[in-house]
Amino acid sequence: MTMVGPENADQARLLRMLRDDGPRSRVELADALGLARARFGAEVDRLAAQGLVETAGPAASRGGRRSSLLRIAEQVRFGAVVVGEGRLDVALTDGELRVLARHGEPIDVRVGPEAVVGRAVELLAKLRVEAGLARLAGIGVALPAPVAVRDGAPASSPALPGWHRFPVRDTVAAELGCPVQVDNDANLMALGEHHAGTGRAFNDFLYVKLGDAVGCGLVLDGALYRGATSGAGHIAHLQLTEDGPLCVCGNTGCVEAYCGDAALVRQAVAAARAGRSAALGDRLAAAGALTMADVAGAATDGDPIAQTLVRDAARRLGQVLVNLVSFANPAIVIIGGAAPGIGPVLLAEIRGVVYRRSTPLATDSMPIVLSDLDDRAALIGAARLISDQVFAAC
């Protein structure tokens, strides 16, 4: 049985309802779609013939003849790929975008797109075989760089040296024989939040992604906003100061040069070598290098220098958010990607700056919270991205 996709807008709406809300009764679905029972039954039969929906048992009785539950068919599986900062993650989800299986491993993006994309294809193929699937319904890919979404390829970025315009979408599609979509990781984290996280309750929010690469995803009026050329939300290289630290992009004083993980680690190494932090010095002496986990660990253990580094970065990020909040007026700001343990310190500093400097109209009822999806946001968002295409009317 070959999955093709919905033939009309009613079938597309039905599939998206089942994806977003889970199994529902035929009666509820027909009412929600505004379709006569006979028309609804015909549309369901066509989707079932394609292997896209199936019966999931009887629905709760509403009096009279009991209706049956419908759900996305069990054979509908989406693939998700997240190329991260030193790590590659792949996953399979069901039609409701729940992660069923995943694999992650360290990877160096500097080896080039052919090797990294090739490895992602291998891992997806392995998960597909283990699940007993002949074909995936589609695959979403998240990259830590600006992406020309129409082309399915990354744009020039310091985070992915040598990847400029590499045809990620077309390469994966040719290897695995299914639809593929590619986007920036912050965008897909925002989509993941909108589908399964705190953002599910909001139609307008900002998702701020921390890490080596800093980014922002915007959900406005219930949809991901990319801008005219997929460039919206790329806040990493906004200039905070003219005489600040040199950034990987070649400019000075960028957000990422102050707030990215690599920036905090460089400052921590300098503090350790200068003897200003015994805790960081001990960690550096023991391992020969520091990581963001070391900085976070020292901060949560009470080291004042590590805490100051985190607070300074958070205050600068708060300065950026003051402008973003004033411009976009989101209902909530969600922050993801923070190193374990430092979330409360980050939030306290960011909230202090944003609530103090933003207009009351923009922030009176606007919470600033940490993501509750951990590292699943991008995987779920990647599956959501491709499901939007697969569950669209042909």
Rank of each mutant, 00 (worst) to 15 (best):
E7I: 09
D10I: 06
A12D: 10
S25N: 10
L29Q: 08
R46D: 06
R46S: 11
A49D: 11
Q50G: 01
P58E: 13
S61M: 11
R62I: 13
S67D: 14
E74M: 04
Q75S: 15
V76M: 05
G79R: 02
R87Q: 15
V90A: 04
A91Y: 04
T93S: 11
D94N: 07
E96P: 10
R98T: 14
L100H: 04
H103F: 12
H103T: 12
E105S: 13
D108H: 11
V109H: 13
V111N: 10
G112I: 03
G112M: 03
P113E: 06
V121W: 08
E130I: 10
L133A: 10
G138C: 00
G140K: 02
V147F: 05
A153V: 08
A155F: 08
H164V: 13
H164L: 09
R165N: 04
P167N: 00
R169L: 00
D170L: 00
P179K: 11
N187R: 05
M189G: 14
A190L: 04
E193D: 01
H195G: 13
G199R: 09
K209G: 12
G215A: 12
L220Q: 09
L220K: 07
A223M: 11
A223Y: 06
A228S: 10
H234D: 06
G244K: 01
P245G: 09
L246G: 10
L246V: 14
C249I: 10
V255Y: 00
C259H: 04
G260S: 11
A262C: 08
A268D: 07
A268M: 13
R276D: 12
G281Y: 01
A286L: 06
A286S: 07
L290K: 10
A293H: 10
D294Q: 13
D294K: 06
A296W: 03
T300N: 05
T300F: 02
R311G: 12
R315A: 15
V325M: 03
F327P: 01
N329I: 14
P330D: 00
I335N: 00
G336C: 01
G341T: 05
V345W: 06
S358K: 02
A362H: 07
S365V: 13
M366R: 02
I368D: 05
S371F: 03
L373A: 02
R376I: 07
R376E: 14
A378G: 00
I380S: 12
S387Y: 08
D388S: 15
V390M: 01
C394V: 11
